[in-house]
Design a binder for these strands. Structure first.
Lengths: 247, 247
DNA sequence: GTCTATAGTTCGATAGAC
DNA sequence: GTCTATCGAACTATAGAC
């Protein structure tokens, strides 16, 4: 019923996006507002009304351009993730194609490069809130979180895990996977903009800065290395790990 | 207006809880249902209707016992956190009062002891969902998340950070804080019950088990140690870290 | 493309009977 | 304590004028 306009809209905006780089001010204002509101309050906590208000447009216009709340939500990830993953992918390619001796730090530095190195100008406005949104999605167990995760972030995750396996041939695929996920978790806490670090005794940085990128890489790299040759990574069958692994 | 019944209710249930251990079946059914629904969908995504349904009671009864959605939300943390923090606090006391040489692993093992070691029987039913709820709260930047975090989890966080400082005298307070937060992040990914680890190549455990508790401790301990004597921990003023720390 | 107006639903909370 | 019934507000989405 409404698919007529919805389809036309998405087709049209697609053309606009790839033909010229005109931000089509209203459309990008809506997407930016969505990123902010979703980032602050999550999917359920955000409302199309809030987003329209924040964008300074009528609520109906949001539906006209993005058809539904769910589609708008995905559009937020669509815009960011392709560029992010392309950036990290290329750096990983370069790392392994040229010089030989790549380290764990190299891989993690690429995997965790701050988004402000990837986006510039007005595209870099809501990065912190987008990062918070991704963190929420990465933990969620609902269907929507799973969908977004698998579509936009699992591919690059697999690439990084493979890269870890390359720089640390002694690590099992299982341990490399956990090492990556642990590191992602550490990174999420590093990026949390909830003021907790400052409250607990770690001085905060300016609004756009990420806290301690180097410390994060150092922490994660040491953690990853600590999982090499551990327990059943080196032929020693599953012995210790089986017990006492409860919530 | 409704404060009359609300106050009476909380006073009454308080008496019940400390006098005898009768779960007052309906009341605890509501709290358990709230824990599940909040855990799965977050605060905004949960509804009093869902919770009442899940508990098998009328919606008005939820309001009668807990007065508001917000109060019910806090009640979920109230029940769990006191016992959790008391448990970890005592173990930290024991660790430092008796034998001398405590290690980073000792501290992290205590800080991350699976909840299933603390709760038993029917009290251990929704632990995984509660853990997921805490993870969400730990990242949230909204006022409610901040309130819950500061009230229920910052005290034990400070204790653990102090403990890290004790077992690693060379570490600065700032680095100990980040080390703790990074570790918490790693733990959250370890506990995530969204099936991502399995999807990415790390075999899953049975429903109630936490993935790789020992690997988590090993990872985090190595990470924490890697932050000792780093950059400006050892008198070398803020030099390297200042630049390039952006989102 | 953009708006106003509104349909249709779901929400938190309360009133009041038992 | 527990229920049914309902109010008023907020929500997603659509219709239709411009």
């Amino acid at each position: 019923m409404r698919s007529e306009r919805a389809k036309k809209a998405s087709a049209k905006s697609g053309v606009i996006q790839e033909a010229d780089q005109a931000p089509s001010s209203r459309v990008s204002a809506i997407l930016n507002a969505a990123e902010r509101v979703f980032g602050e309050h999550g999917y359920a906590g955000a409302s199309m009304r809030n987003i329209a208000e924040e964008a300074g447009v009528a609520q109906a216009l949001v539906h006209y351009h993005y058809a539904s709340k769910d589609k708008l939500f995905e559009a937020v990830f669509e815009r960011r993730s392709s560029k992010i993953n392309q950036y990290r992918g290329k750096l990983l390619d370069d790392l392994f194609s040229s010089g030989r001796s790549a380290t764990v730090e190299d891989v993690l530095t690429i995997a965790f490069t701050p988004l402000s190195k990837i986006f510039h100008g007005e595209d870099a406005d809501n990065l912190a809130l987008y990062v918070q949104l991704v963190a929420t999605i990465s933990l969620g167990s609902d269907e929507r979180s799973r969908r977004v995760r698998e579509k936009y972030y699992d591919p690059i995750a697999e690439r990084v895990i493979d890269a870890l396996h390359t720089v640390l041939p002694g690590i099992s695929h299982e341990h490399a996977t956990w090492a990556y996920l642990f590191s992602v978790g550490a990174r999420q806490q590093a990026h949390a903009l909830n003021g907790r670090a400052a409250r607990l005794g770690a001085p905060e940085r300016t609004s756009k800065s990420i806290a301690h990128y180097e410390q994060l890489v150092r922490f994660a790299a040491a953690g990853v290395r600590a999982l090499v040759g551990t327990t059943r990574d080196t032929a020693s069958k599953s012995s210790t790990v089986k017990r006492k692994e409860r919530v």
